[in-house]
Design a protein around this nucleic acid. Structure first.
Lengths: 239, 239
DNA sequence: TGTAATTTGTTCGTATGTATT
DNA sequence: CAATACATACGAACAAATTAC
């Protein structure tokens, strides 16, 4: 059963269980299957499963109770839903106790051709650029750079800073509803800036999204590049 | 403008242009903006842009012609669209000349609890497991493990092997249409198996998707775990 | 309330692989 | 190369806590 060389069995199994928890596989009951069941399913001895669960318990991900079973204590990964009506805060609201958006910097600038193209602007148009990050339970889960057309959203930096939410900030500008036009997802190695801002180690993986939001009329209102620590985040696209 | 340490300016710009090409930013014309325009937009000297373009030309991604401009020769990354009607082959059909699906192995097995749960099966039910990979222009772009309920899809291994397409294989079992229920996306470091099968280097990044397809009645027909080389692949979710 | 079934916790033993000395 | 120590993995049995009927 030793698929990987140099990686102990219990480690492989704890990784798979951790991934299953992150994927919401045991959400219905909030409990893991019994050790004997897991052992049978992974095709290993119960002791090996116990070693895997002990490691997860050490991480604080699960908690075992004699006679009762093994409960899920917390998710290791945050699951970001992506869809037409993706809302950052709502999406992971039930996965963290403390969720917080922070504005790092704001400035007006002439958009690059990339940003202008995405927002459907003409050369010479000005955009508002915001830098922000999100913290869930005190840990950084994303770092975003966002651009808004300046003509419609002057002052959105203040609104975002005060509310800590893009949705609420947009509401102040009369945007009750907005749609996610597209989301591109790629993955790269962490850059020095990521290591600093997302509290990563060199060599870590960063998930990068490029996303465009439009109003209900289809006019672009926000283009954002967001960087997520891959070891703490995954995405789910539901149809 | 030197934002990052240790990465030359021309390198940063060539990376951004490569990413823009992958994102389809210049698809309308198939050409890059003039060097002077690019220099202005990135805020650097034209010589720096020329160094960046020379590097991309060396990679075979762009080709410059005197007096004409710089044309896009090929995409560096394949863009996999993800949506309700995601079709592997159709999605990237226009991005590669030669697209090929290969069946590596097939077997019947009692599904693990994870697979059974996803496919909505009972303990003891049997599933068909297929291992396959996709090649685009001779390069590996994905490696999949797929599971089908055995009762409905016995023999799908032969159908997939003969057609090289899941869509066509399913058609032989009376499935004219199917829907992508959800897609989970995460990223991990390449395992030894990835290094071998996807022709990667150790330390490279692998994008991992867990996806479920259902028939039009909503019954699960296929659960798949697919691994993509992150340096050659990105995803786009359109609403 | 009592009893059986379930589930984690613990302790033996045996064998194998890995790293160090 | 050999000896040693340590981690890993499997098997069997039993104890202790909890749940279900």
């Amino acid at each position: 059963m030793q698929k990987q060389k140099g990686v102990s069995l219990w480690r492989q199994i704890s990784d798979r269980i951790r991934a299953n928890i992150a994927a919401g596989l045991y959400d219905a009951s909030g409990m893991l299957p019994a050790e004997t069941m897991l052992a049978q399913e992974f095709g290993v001895n119960r002791h090996t499963v116990r070693a895997a669960l002990a490691a997860l318990a050490q991480e604080g991900i699960v908690r075992a109770s004699q006679g009762r079973g093994t409960m899920i204590e917390r998710r290791d990964k945050f699951d970001f839903p992506i869809g037409k009506r993706t809302r950052f805060t709502e999406g992971i609201g039930d996965q963290a106790r403390d969720l917080k958006g922070v504005l790092l910097s704001a400035q007006l600038e002439p958009g690059s051709s990339e940003v202008r193209h995405r927002l459907g602007l003409e050369p010479g148009d000005i955009v508002v650029k915001l830098d922000g990050m999100r913290l869930a339970d005190g840990r950084a889960v994303s770092r975003s750079t966002m651009w808004f057309p300046c003509d419609r959203f002057t002052g959105i930096d203040v609104a975002f800073s005060e509310t800590g939410s893009i949705t609420k900030a947009l509401a102040r500008f009369g945007i009750d509803d907005y749609l996610r036009e597209y989301t591109e997802i790629s993955a790269v190695h962490a850059e020095p800036e990521d290591v600093a801002s997302l509290e990563l180690t060199p060599g870590a993986i960063v998930l990068v999204t490029h996303a465009l939001n439009t109003d209900t009329a289809g006019r672009p209102i926000q283009y954002a590049i967001t960087r997520f620590p891959a070891d703490r985040v995954q995405f789910t696209i539901r149809s």
